[in-house]
Nucleic acid binder design. Structure first.
Lengths: 189, 189
DNA sequence: GTCTATAGGTGGATAGAC
DNA sequence: GTCTATCCACCTATAGAC
């Protein structure tokens, strides 16, 4: 059976590489060098690059959803939840990374089908969570917006992903934070 | 001297490839196949891929700025200008493409230095134009917003780029338009 | 300007020893 | 599980004939 720890370490390195360079911007050789193993042994854990990519997204989504659940449990209202959601993105950017799925969305046309479906699944899950929080915010009066919550959720997701991508081009986290504040202030007014 | 027409046709193909697949997602072989020439003859026009990439961005920005100037000349007020600005993005998406520089922003870490600078230059030019239009909208009362125009401009640019990228993953232009409307309605209220 | 031919490197992936 | 060795396809790029 595959050593779970080794697989996880491979995924850790690969995740960083995809988030910084993109799925088409790294190779098995890069991971091998970082882990001091041969390319061949990577193929034992992930036979094809598409397998590696798919497991990357699925692990990323599991971890992300776990973080969202912690936010649900620990936040006092919907407004606080949104602020912590945005903070998740900022933490990624702090490490000079792009959201894994935001990066893959750019490369979408070149991805194997299984990865495409997983990317969309991640976005869907994010939007569902955001829409639920927005609805909750309307009830508890901590948030204010017009139109369907699902549409606000899409705008928020796109706004954060886009701001992240551009801010990374400038190596300027403050830039991301400013956009973040604008997007959220708007819902809190 | 290089045949200008051939160079332009090469750039046309390359532009489409970058906008759909990314700079690391295509090769000289792809262009050669589309144009029915050999890879070697492409190197006559663009010795290295970095040269091709740089000229791609610079031509893209020239064309984009020309479009912005037409908008300036033909629009009745700032509000109309913003709507036409957003329409530029939608037209790109209609062709199943991503904004050239939005795509390159994702691959930023893997780009040659000259291309990085050009990508940022494109964003800078966009933000300057947007900020000027926003200021104008404040004067002519066709737009309403709080805080610095430059910050609203950044939020708008990021919002459009992000919405574009995600909408393309779903092959759903309507999704982009909905986000667009939300972003702009907000400034017109 | 475009071609043939090729160099020199790297990509993902596999076979089989240990 | 990891290794050596290797395959083959593809990559960017160049030399030199036409």
């Amino acid at each position: 059976m595959a050593n779970a720890d080794t697989s996880q370490r491979i995924l850790d390195i690969a995740e960083r590489l995809v988030q910084t360079r993109g799925f088409n911007g790294f190779s098995y050789a890069d991971i091998a060098a970082a882990l001091n193993v041969t390319k061949a042994s990577l193929h034992y854990h992930f036979p094809a690059k598409a397998d590696l990519g798919q497991q990357l997204i699925e692990r990323y989504e599991r971890n992300f959803l776990a973080a969202l659940q912690r936010i649900d449990e620990e936040s006092k209202d919907a407004r606080a939840k949104l602020r912590r959601y945005a903070a998740l993105y900022r933490e990624v950017l702090d490490n000079n990374r792009m959201c894994l799925c935001g990066m893959l969305a750019a490369e979408f046309a070149t991805l194997p089908k299984s990865m495409r479906e997983d990317v969309r699944h991640f976005f869907d899950a994010n939007e569902r969570w955001l829409a639920a929080v927005l609805q909750e915010g309307k009830r508890d009066r901590s948030l204010r917006f017009s139109g369907p919550a699902a549409q606000v959720a899409q705008t928020l997701l796109g706004g954060l992903e886009g701001a992240m991508m551009i801010a990374r081009s400038y190596g300027d986290v403050a830039r991301f934070e400013a956009t973040c504040d604008r997007l959220l202030d708007d819902l809190e007014s």
